[in-house]
Nucleic acid binder design. Structure first.
Lengths: 140, 140
DNA sequence: ATCCTTATTGCAATAAGTTACAATAAAAAG
DNA sequence: CTTTTTATTGTAACTTATTGCAATAAGGAT
């Protein structure tokens, strides 16, 4: 896997930044979780010895460096995960179930928008809200 | 205009909720701003006498009732505006310029996703990030 | 291995946001 | 108009997030 914590750590060095135990700890937590976590969850899971400002600042840093991806969920919170394969999310606003949308599924749409607006679209990890088939059925 | 503060206020009553001066004050601030505002900005602009919990709770309430629309911007903050015509935003991550995307421009894309996923997509006000033509030119 | 440089961290103070619950007031009924 | 009901608000305590700055330690140089 090209996105192990070790690999990401190496990228921090290559970009000319310092690899600290604090940054390593955050990457490890995200790796072991294997899913989106919000800031407080990350802070809670991390081994004692890191302060909140450090954790939050480093999350911002890792996002800026494209080593961690951030998305906003239905509840308005930001959630973080290691930047593995690009994807988006579709979340049910009733039961909260989430499904991944492959980035390719949105590519054509993004291309069309680039043509019509002149913008270059980049690094959008979006979470769309909807109602899943299950809850839709119950609702009817 | 079908979305004046007065009209929205009337809808609150029609839905069986109470029209309080606090709710009216929030709608008025959003109306007079005529643009997205984040929570702290709204709280700052509002006439004295409203408390933070009241402002924030009512923003949540108004969003739930579809009278106010919320979107997440590039900086991770949530921004609010009166629910006028449905649209989305495209924001330049370099200079911050924003442009509106008409909801119709995304309709075909949403329809396709509904077919392939089985989800019903509802009330997504999304903000896509990109680089505007201007900044793209300077960058090259 | 030791010394430098300065990016990064921790601390302390502050600001922003949340929660639980008692007090208030909007709207309906008499 | 007065009373009643209960949705809504304000208060106070608490949790989470941010900021400025001095102390620390990562990584390059000697």
């Amino acid at each position: 896997m090209t996105c192990s914590p070790q690999h990401l750590a190496e990228q921090i060095r290559q970009k000319g930044f310092r690899l600290t135990r604090q940054r390593m700890a955050i990457l490890t937590v995200l790796d072991e979780a294997g899913q989106h976590l919000c800031r407080t969850e990350i802070y809670a899971r991390i081994a004692p010895g890191l302060t909140e400002p450090t954790v939050y600042r480093n999350l911002d840093f890792l996002v800026e460096q494209d080593l961690v991806r951030v998305t906003h969920t239905g509840n308005g919170r930001l959630e973080y995960e290691l930047a593995r394969h690009p994807h988006h999310h579709l979340q049910c606003r009733v039961c909260g179930a989430k499904m991944e949308l492959d980035a390719n599924a949105l590519q054509a749409f993004f291309n069309g928008l680039e043509n019509s607006t002149g913008y270059r679209l980049s690094e959008n990890h979006i979470t769309l809200m909807g109602v899943c088939p299950n809850c839709k059925f119950k609702g009817d």
